[in-house]
Structure formats: C-alpha cells, structure tokens
Design a protein around this nucleic acid. Structure first.
Lengths: 75, 75
DNA sequence: ATGTAGACTCGCGTCGACG
DNA sequence: GCGTCGACGCGAGTCTACA
C-alpha cells in the first residue's frame, strides 16, 4: 500500500479510537476540518510538525503511529 | 527544542553514521543536494514520504528516527 | 563537500459554500 | 458529520550558480 493511503487509514483508525469527529480533531489540533478529511482520503500528506500536533491530540506518540504506517506500507 | 531543529540534528547524526555526504544521500534518495542541507539546518520540514525515502537510504526505520526526534523535542 | 541565494513548480493547509 | 469544489497564501522541493 502506498504511504499516504497507509497514513490515512491509521489516522482514521486512531481518530475513531479517540472518539472524535473530523471536526473535533481539526479544532483541537488547530487545523482545518476539510484538511483532516483530505488526509484520511490520502489526498494530502502531512509535514512532520502536522504529524506531531495531530498525535498530541490523539494522545499517541508519533513513532507509534509511524510504526503502524510502516506495517501497512510493508517495511 | 523545536521540532524541525530536532529533526535536522537527528538527520545529520544518522547521515554521518551511515558515512554519507549530503550529496551522496541526496543522490540515493532522489532529492536535491541543497534540500538535504536545508533540512539539516532546519529551514525546511520534510513531508512523511520524504521522511520514509530518506530513512530507507539510511537503513533505519522511520519510527526509530521519529523516536529520537521526540526525545530532542521533549515528549 | 557544504552554505547560501534567487527563481521556479507544485503541493500543503486554509476558507467559504454546497449537498 | 462528512465529501467535494474553487480559490488562495505559503512552504516543500528543484535547479543553477557562487563562494
């Protein structure tokens, strides 16, 4: 699986686990609602600061999330 | 420490560990030489695909590198 | 082998609006 | 609550060139 799609899947999974809507997540990590949607649908890729601020809200360490992305990506 | 600076430090450290010059690294991961320099000096931040392709060349898992960035960043 | 600078393309990230 | 669209500013990433 390509990397942005892997990230989108992992993001969606952890957002649901946190019990947040795209809007709530966007609000808390100071991003746009539509942009979270774009990330989950793999139409945008985050920079690493964006990654860190999302992970902070999701209460997960960035490297944990990246590890899951690696698995889906296949390395 | 801010996040792009943390990344720059970690990148430089692992590039040296791999025994590569900025030019050699850039060539192998299909990026520009000047851009690697910009990353190390924290004047640019990588997207996550850029992160993955750099890590592949450095023979390190992205989540390992991210873990070190977290430490420097302080979380 | 690296730092810097200018100019360029394209994608990130925002915003308003509609279904 | 989400997908999508158009438009926008700005930053990612490239290229050339000079020190």
């Amino acid at each position: 699986m390509e990397i942005s799609k892997a990230f989108g899947n992992v993001l969606k999974k952890h957002r649901k686990l946190a019990g947040l809507s795209q809007e709530q997540l966007a609000l808390q990590c100071d991003l746009d609602r539509t942009y979270i949607g774009l990330l989950e649908r793999a139409q945008r890729q985050p920079s690493i600061t964006t990654l860190f601020s999302i992970c902070e809200v999701l209460k997960i360490k960035p490297h944990e999330l990246i590890k899951e992305v690696e698995k889906l990506y296949g390395i």
